[in-house]
Design a protein around this nucleic acid. Structure first.
Lengths: 109, 109
DNA sequence: TCCTTGTATCGTAAAATTACGATGAATTAT
DNA sequence: ATAATTCATCGTAATTTTACGATACAAGGA
């Protein structure tokens, strides 16, 4: 006779109000800043509000195409906003999303 | 006669007190949570304090080896702590590092 | 109109990440 | 001592990310 083994995951001590699309967005934001170059870009934008792509390219030791790619990741993750100004693009922090990120982090941990 | 062009990066509006090893640690923490499975593990640990590896393996739809690998990433990033208890390993949040993370985020953004 | 400037996107090579089964190592049970 | 349990690590295939040069595109100036 073999005994029946019932797998039980321990009971939760509490609930967490994050899931679905919000959770995906949060993970995307974490992932975007989990890269040294992109973190450096965010630091640069904090200390140099609304500068253009070229300023960041001049500042960083990597190719323009790569910077543009990183800016796209940060933009799609919601960390920054880009505004086309003539032939240039001006970037600034997406304050609303950043505030949202902080609230979620404070809420979860 | 060609005119000399001097590249100038715009002046900073402020300074940011994060760099070097601290910055690397912060990026590593962001990177670790920038993965859906690892985020899910963190959520599980928040709601199920000090559970063992097997509990997480039962909860997630992925192989034990993969869970173990993700736990290692979270441990090395400083999000969690593991304690060997006999043949099992019990994991819990690394509260101190988590607090440090939140302080840095609040400080920067 | 044609050229220059500032960026984004494409194609692609190299590197890193993710997932798995298999194996190993340590502890406990028989 | 042997077997079972629990977990980490190894080796590796598949996928994703990162970086670059080349190219395209849009706006402004000559």
């Amino acid at each position: 006779m073999s005994e029946e083994i019932i797998q039980t995951i321990p009971e939760a001590c509490c609930t967490l109000d994050i899931s679905g699309a919000d959770q995906e967005k949060l993970v995307t934001m974490f992932k975007a800043l989990g890269n040294p170059i992109r973190f450096e870009i965010m630091k640069f934008l904090v200390t140099h509000p609304s500068c253009i792509t070229g300023d960041i390219v001049d500042y960083l030791p990597i190719a323009q195409a790569t910077v543009s790619q990183h800016l796209k990741v940060l933009r799609q993750a919601g960390w920054i906003e880009g505004t086309v100004e003539g032939t240039a693009t001006s970037y600034c922090l997406h304050e609303k999303n950043i505030a949202w990120f902080r609230q979620r982090v404070d809420e979860i941990f």
